[in-house]
Amino acid sequence: MSPAQFGRESAATGEWKRQGNRFVDRIRRDSSSKPGEGPDDQGRWPVEPGRYRLVVSLACPWAHRSVIVRKLLGLEDAISLAIVDPVRDDRGWRFGLDPSGRDPVLGIEFLSEAYRKTDPSYDGRVTVPAIVDTLSGLVVTNDFPQITLDLSTEWTEYHRPHAPQLIPADRAELDQLMDEIYREVNNGVYRCGFATSQEAYEAAYDVLFARLDVLEERLADRPYLLGDTLSEVDIRLFTTLVRFDAVYHGHFKCNRNKLTEFPNLWAYARRLYQLPGFGETVDFDQIKRHYYLTHDTINPNRIVPKGPDPRAWLP
C-alpha cells in the first residue's frame, strides 16, 4: 500500500498528512434518543450497554488506545470488542481472525461494509477504531481521539468500582500535552515514515526527537506525565512508545535513538507495560506483521524482522 492510501501527501513538499475522520457522532448520556433508536437530531446516540461494538486492530496505535481505556474502566461487558486481521489489503480491514471470516455479531467480512452502509458514497480509507451500532449495522464514530474521552466521561455508570479517573477536572494541561504529543510524536512517526521528500522527512524527524527530548526531561522527576496519577495522555503516548523500537525506529526511519536509549522514557514505558490493561493488550506479532506486510512502498520484500526481544519489557 502506498502512503497515499493511509492519508494524503503534498506533491510539492512530500509532506504526508493524515486523513480526517468521517464519522463523528457521539454516544452521550444526554442523548434524547431512547434505547433501541438511532441518533437524535444532534448526532448523539444513547449510552446503552450491550448495544455497541468496538472494532479494533491490535496492530494500530489509535485503536490500541481504546482497548486499554475500555479495559482500565471495566467496560468489557458494556461494549463488545471485535478484532480485525492485522494484515490489510486494498479491501481494508478484514475479520479474518474469526473462524468464519465474518464478525459473529455484525455478520460482515470487512469493516468497509459498515462504512458503506452508513455512507454509500464514502470512498476514503476505512480506519480503526470504529464503534458500530449492532442494531442497525451503522458506524457511530471513527473519531479516535473522542472515543476514549467519551468512554471516560459518558459511560461512568458502567465503570468498574475504583476505575481510574483518566481525565482530571482541570483539563488545560492534559489537553495541551495531548495536542503536542499527537502532532509531534503519535502522528510524527507517520510523517517521518510516509514522507516522500528528504526535506519533509528531516523536518518531521527533527520535530519528533525534539519532543521526545522534552518528554524525557519531563519524566525525570515524575512517574506519569501529569505527576503522580495515570491519565489519558499516558495511554496516548504509550501506544506509540511500545511500537517504537519494533517498528518506527527502522521501518519509519525514526532512528536517532531507540526507545531503550532514553533512560526515563524507557523506564516509564516499561512501568506502564507492567500495569494491568497495558502489556496484556500488546501483540508484537500483529504489530510487526501489520506494518512490515502492508506498506509495500517502504518494505517491498515484506520481510518481518525477528526482533526486538519482547522479554525486555518484563520485570
Rank of each mutant, 00 (worst) to 15 (best):
P3Y: 09
A4Y: 07
Q5S: 12
F6C: 02
A11L: 13
A11T: 11
G14E: 11
W16A: 03
W16T: 08
V24N: 13
V24E: 12
K34I: 08
P35G: 00
G36S: 01
G38R: 00
D41S: 14
G43L: 04
W45K: 01
P46A: 07
G50D: 02
Y52I: 06
Y52E: 02
V56M: 10
W62N: 02
W62T: 00
H64L: 01
I68G: 07
R70P: 11
G74L: 11
A78C: 09
I79F: 05
I83P: 04
P86H: 05
R91C: 08
F95R: 03
G96C: 08
G96W: 04
L97P: 05
D98L: 08
P99W: 06
P99L: 12
S100K: 14
V105N: 06
L106E: 10
I108S: 04
I108C: 08
E109G: 08
A114Y: 02
P120Q: 06
S121E: 15
D123Q: 14
V128I: 09
T134Q: 07
L135T: 10
L135M: 10
G137N: 03
V139G: 00
F144S: 15
T148L: 10
L151R: 08
L151F: 14
E154Y: 07
T156S: 14
T156Y: 07
T156L: 12
H159N: 06
H159E: 12
H162E: 15
P168S: 10
A169Q: 14
A172Q: 13
Q176E: 13
Y182W: 10
N186V: 11
R191L: 03
C192K: 04
A195T: 06
A195N: 04
F209V: 10
R211D: 03
E217V: 07
R218I: 09
R218H: 11
L219K: 00
A220P: 00
P223Q: 04
L226Y: 10
I235Q: 05
R236H: 08
L237C: 06
L237I: 06
L237Y: 07
T239S: 02
L241F: 13
R243P: 01
V247K: 04
G250Y: 05
G250H: 14
F252W: 06
K258A: 06
P263V: 00
W266E: 05
Y268M: 00
L272S: 00
L272I: 03
D283Y: 01
F284G: 01
D285V: 14
Q286N: 10
K288W: 01
K288R: 15
T294N: 00
N299C: 02
P300V: 04
V304T: 12
V304N: 07
K306W: 09
D309W: 08
R311E: 13
L314Q: 12
